[in-house]
């Protein structure tokens, strides 16, 4: 059983993706990463990752998937900020 209905999670994630879509690629991904990391309960993130692992996320925007991967890989200290997505020096 998923923590929250996956359809709902996918909708939310894609909506976030839609907002950041007009930014240049690296910033677009960072915008979504920052949002998922700092606004989503970890169990929601986990459920979302599980869904991506299980299905490959055919209905999830590409840059949202990239952002999800960044959140998962995030070992560096959390960058928590409001405002426009920042250009990341290195994307993994």
């Amino acid at each position: 059983m998923s923590f929250i209905d996956t359809e709902r999670l996918v909708t939310m994630a894609n909506q976030i993706g839609d907002f950041f879509a007009p930014y240049p690629h690296a910033r677009r991904v960072e915008g979504v990463r920052n949002h998922l990391r700092n606004y989503w309960d970890p169990r929601m993130r986990e459920a979302f990752f599980e869904y991506l692992d299980a299905t490959g996320g055919p209905d999830v925007h590409e840059h949202v998937k990239e952002a999800a991967a960044l959140v998962r890989a995030d070992t560096a200290p959390v960058r928590a900020y409001a405002g426009p997505p920042k250009q990341l020096d290195a994307t993994s």
């Binding site: 059983m1 998923s2 923590f3 929250i4 209905d5």
Partner: peptide
């Protein structure tokens, strides 16, 4: 509420 309906 979402989580509640999912039983968590």
């Amino acid at each position: 509420f979402d989580a509640a309906t999912a039983g968590t």
